[in-house]
Simulated assay, not measured.
Amino acid sequence: MPKRILQGVVTSDKNDQTITVLVERRFTHPVLKKTIRKTKKYRAHDEGNAFKVGDAVRIQECAPKSKTKRWEVLSPQAE
Rank of each mutant, 00 (worst) to 15 (best):
P2E: 14
P2T: 11
K3H: 07
K3L: 12
I5V: 15
I5T: 13
G8R: 04
V9P: 02
V10K: 03
D13K: 08
K14T: 12
D16M: 14
Q17D: 07
I19F: 03
T20F: 07
L22W: 02
V23T: 08
V23L: 10
E24S: 15
R26Y: 15
P30W: 07
P30L: 10
L32D: 11
L32R: 15
K34C: 05
K34A: 11
K34H: 04
T35R: 14
K38F: 01
K38C: 08
K41W: 12
Y42V: 01
R43V: 04
R43N: 12
R43F: 03
R43T: 06
D46L: 06
E47M: 13
G48H: 13
N49K: 06
A50C: 08
A50T: 09
A50P: 00
A50N: 13
F51H: 14
V53S: 02
G54F: 12
G54N: 08
D55P: 06
D55A: 12
D55W: 02
R58V: 12
R58N: 10
Q60M: 11
Q60S: 10
E61V: 01
A63F: 08
A63G: 00
P64F: 13
K65W: 02
T68N: 14
K69E: 09
K69N: 08
R70C: 04
R70M: 07
W71D: 02
E72S: 07
S75K: 13
A78W: 09
A78N: 14
